[in-house]
């Protein structure tokens, strides 16, 4: 469009499909994150219903690290994908 259209025009069907795929991806990551950080931070004895300070701090850091790692890995994968040429590694 106006000479700027690097991306092909998507129909609304395709847009919805792309959005669904993205939501799937995010949901998947979110579920993994929850299970990992739960395993790491929450005391399995469940003495209390509420979080205590140590647990909430731990969760906070865990989530931050998880996101950061995820972004970094994603960036690297994208770069790999761009530089990928069949037959060569």
């Amino acid at each position: 469009m106006f000479g700027l259209g690097g991306q092909p025009q998507l129909s609304s069907q395709q847009k919805i499909a792309a959005a669904e795929a993205e939501l799937d991806l995010v949901t998947d990551m979110f579920n993994k994150l929850v299970s990992n950080c739960h395993r790491k931070c929450i005391d399995m004895n469940y003495n209390e219903g509420d979080l205590n300070k140590n647990e909430s701090n731990c969760l906070d850091r865990c989530v931050a690290k998880y996101f950061e790692t995820n972004v970094k890995v994603g960036e690297n994968m994208q770069q790999l994908g761009q530089n990928f040429s069949p037959g060569k590694f």
């Binding site: 209390e48 509420d50 979080l51 205590n52 300070k53 140590n54 909430s56 701090n57």
Partner: peptide, 13 residues
Amino acid sequence: DQGAAHMDTWLKP
């Protein structure tokens, strides 16, 4: 004791 204290989810330490 401070670390084991309850903390609300809407609070940042």
